[in-house]
């Protein structure tokens, strides 16, 4: 297949790729991988994806609908109970550091006494 033919084929699929209509599982989709690689080097196909992204965003936004009010209450109640990984990780790091410093100071005090 010539480069022009390859471009034509992928150009055809770029819009479908953007809409999510290529395959059920894009991670396993050879067509999707080929398009992604091609997009890095093809301005024309990038323009194709860019307009399709806008159209896809319009389709998604058209479905927007207010959720039941109690959902927000449930979420906020749950959030109050769920610690964040980053916060907990950060606190754990500080505690570990404080324990290490305390142990070092205790060791130094012991050595100085001897």
């Amino acid at each position: 297949m010539s480069e022009a033919e390859r471009h034509g084929e992928l150009h055809d699929l770029a819009v479908l790729y953007t809409l999510g209509a290529l395959e059920t599982n894009l991670a396993d989709c050879a067509e999707a991988r080929a398009i992604e690689a091609h997009l890095h080097e093809c301005e024309e196909c990038r323009a194709e994806v860019a307009f399709a992204q806008v159209g896809t965003a319009m389709v998604a936004r058209s479905a927007a609908e207010a959720p039941p009010a109690e959902l927000k209450q449930r979420l906020l109640a749950a959030v109050a109970r769920i610690p964040q990984r980053r916060k907990r990780g950060s606190a754990a790091r500080w505690i570990a550091l404080a324990v290490a410093v305390a142990a070092l100071l205790a060791l130094m005090a012991l050595l100085l006494r001897v």
């Binding site: 953007t18 997009l39 990038r46 860019a50 992204q53 806008v54 965003a57 319009m58 927007a64």
Partner: peptide, 28 residues
């Protein structure tokens, strides 16, 4: 699934979510 390099193409996408009235989108 859209790689980061491609996500940067879509500045106008943000307009759809940030600036457009939903009724305009539904009508379109």
């Amino acid at each position: 699934e859209i790689p980061q390099t491609l996500a940067a193409l879509g500045d106008l996408e943000e307009t759809v979510f940030a600036d457009l009235d939903r009724d305009v989108v539904v009508r379109a």
